[in-house]
Amino acid sequence: MICMYEKEKEQVVEACRRIAQDGLTVGSWGNISVRADDGKIAITPSGKNYNKTEKEDIVITSIDGDILEGHLTPSSERLMHYEIYRKRSDVKAIVHTHSVYSSILSVVDDDLPAITEDVIMILGRSVRVAKYAMTGTVDLAKNVVEALGDSNATIMKNHGAVAVGKDIDRAMAAAYVLEKSAKIYVMAKLLGKVSAVPDDDVDKLIGISEAYLKQWDRWKK
């Protein structure tokens, strides 16, 4: 039988391999999902090593958590994915990583300010640290959604990072920009001074960011 969600499964598997190979997570930590055009969710299974994850391991669920296809248990953080999708109709993909520098900010409870232009244009005015809650809980899901707001990334206190996008490519780009920017911020703090982009210029960059991102097809080539 031909699966209706082959594309979404392939996207999730490819993203899994990339974040594992590039050191944004280790083993099975973190999770990734893609929302199909019909609203169904393709999500990573719980406890599966990303370097060994195959298309048949990806679970298809409804936004209410009903398992529609797959032989494994969906990610333990699925409630967070569902809550983001409910609150953000523009989001079609979510990438949760345990990347090192983003996790440092999660431990010191430091929001990431608008320190570079790509933070503003890819992630938003800033990246907030969500209030702590136990992994896999409804409280965690709600805290993440609150901190995320209308931006494309947030940091989960004492946990890791979450990036979202209009497709998997943008969500992955947000995850990488977040980790790079978190590293810049941590290193700048070690040197003793952090200079953010002026507020007036932040507003201008927000204003032009969507037009800039319309070039996305060229970014991927």
Rank of each mutant, 00 (worst) to 15 (best):
K220Q: 13
V186I: 09
A130Q: 11
S33F: 06
S33Y: 08
K204A: 01
V95G: 05
L178H: 06
V95D: 00
R88S: 12
L205H: 15
D150M: 11
Q215I: 02
I206D: 11
Q11N: 15
A20Y: 04
E83K: 15
L178C: 11
G65K: 09
A133K: 11
Q21Y: 05
I155T: 04
Y212W: 15
K189N: 13
L112S: 04
D90I: 00
Q21I: 09
T25G: 12
I2E: 14
G65I: 04
D110G: 04
D199I: 13
S76M: 15
G165Y: 02
A93I: 01
R35S: 03
W216R: 05
K189L: 09
D167H: 13
L191A: 00
I19E: 00
D38S: 02
K220L: 12
D201S: 09
G70R: 10
D118N: 14
R35L: 04
Y132T: 04
P113G: 07
M187Y: 15
I208P: 14
G47W: 05
D66I: 08
V197D: 03
H81L: 01
T61L: 00
M172W: 01
V197M: 01
A36T: 07
E83W: 14
V26W: 01
M134L: 09
I184S: 06
A175S: 12
Y5H: 02
A130M: 07
I84P: 08
K40W: 08
I155M: 00
I168V: 13
Q11S: 15
P113K: 02
D201N: 12
L123N: 05
N158I: 00
G65Y: 03
A42G: 02
Y5V: 01
K193E: 14
A175K: 07
R35I: 01
L178K: 09
P198V: 01
E210T: 13
S62V: 06
G70T: 10
L191V: 06
P113F: 07
W29C: 07
P198S: 00
Y50W: 08
V13S: 01
D118L: 13
E54K: 11
V162C: 13
V34S: 06
M1D: 07
R18M: 05
D200V: 11
L112N: 03
A171K: 09
M1L: 15
S103A: 06
Y50L: 02
M121Q: 14
V91P: 12
V95R: 01
S195Q: 05
V59F: 04
